[in-house]
């Protein structure tokens, strides 16, 4: 396979990865890494590097729009970025020293876990109560719903903070945005409204990924020949996805299809990891 054929395949594959990632809310990395490692037999370190770069592009691109709408809680994002960047740095260091097959197995497990999370029916529980700490840290906020502002509080900040350290480690280790874990921390533990938690988590992904990308860049994990088609493809796919989402009313069936595919891919990653083929 010549460079030009390889690049075109990767561009198309990345476009679909970005599209699926955006439609399901799981992010493009979930498709990119198996595509590169299982189908194109690329070394997993290169795959993680390319995926990480695409994560920065998509999250920064969509965060730009959300931040202007005033939904993103910037203070909450900044505060939790202490946890995610520290975690991401730790994850990048771990990735250097553990065998690649463990990375593949962990990737498969996180993949299955995220698919389950994305299927679980979500009940929104907003914390209206404001704790001492959330006031001290100025984390409570408000966001626009149908032309009026809805106020919310933030509960269990310590629990959310620790979950974010874990999300950061996974992000740095596997080169994904780990959106599913961030959503658990924000929706489940801190009881933040969905709209705020998804946009704020998205806002944080860029800085989190940058903290591990600086290590990966210096280690030579980010190869321009791979990163170029991946980042362009994923970004264009994510843009298309966001345009489709505006028109679509429900994506439940799509989520199910994606969950089945994801589980199949995850099993492949785990199998290849155990067999030492990755």
């Amino acid at each position: 396979m010549s460079v030009i054929v390889f690049t075109v395949i990767l561009l198309l594959g990345s476009y679909f990865a970005g599209l699926l990632g955006s439609l399901t809310g799981l992010g493009g990395g979930f498709v990119i890494i198996p595509l590169l490692t299982l189908l194109l037999h690329v070394d997993i370190h290169y795959a993680i590097g390319a995926s990480l770069v695409s994560v920065i592009a998509t999250s920064s691109g969509s965060a730009a729009a959300y931040v202007k709408e005033g939904i993103t809680n910037i203070r909450l994002g900044m505060f939790l970025e202490i946890a995610t960047t520290a975690g991401a740095f730790t994850g990048a260091i771990i990735a250097i020293y553990i065998p690649t097959q463990f990375i593949a197995i962990l990737f498969g497990l996180i993949l299955i876990f995220s698919a389950i999370i994305s299927l679980r029916p979500k009940a929104e529980q907003i914390a209206h109560r404001q704790t001492w700490l959330s006031k001290k840290l100025k984390l409570n906020g408000s966001y626009p719903v149908n032309d009026h502002m809805v106020e919310y509080g933030v509960s269990n900040i310590a629990g959310g903070f620790f979950m974010m350290i874990f999300a950061g480690i996974i992000s740095g280790l596997l080169g994904i945005g780990s959106g599913a874990l961030k959503v658990i921390a924000m929706d489940g533990i801190m009881r933040i409204p969905f709209k705020v938690s998804t946009t704020t988590s998205n806002f944080m992904i860029g800085a989190t990924a940058a903290a591990s990308a600086v290590v990966y860049l210096q280690r030579g994990y980010i190869h321009p020949g791979l990163a170029m088609p991946v980042v362009i493809g994923v970004l264009l796919g994510a843009i298309s996805g966001s345009k489709i989402l505006v028109n679509a009313t429900s994506s439940t069936s799509l989520r199910w299809i994606f969950a089945v595919v994801i589980t199949f891919v995850a099993v492949q990653m785990i199998y290849n990891g155990i067999a030492g083929k990755i």
């Binding site: 770069v53 920065i56 920064s60 940058a210 600086v214 860049l217 321009p224 990163a227 980042v231």
Partner: peptide, 9 residues
């Protein structure tokens, strides 16, 4: 790519 990584920073 370096500029892209620098953007969130």
């Amino acid at each position: 790519i370096i500029l892209l990584i620098a953007t969130p920073v």
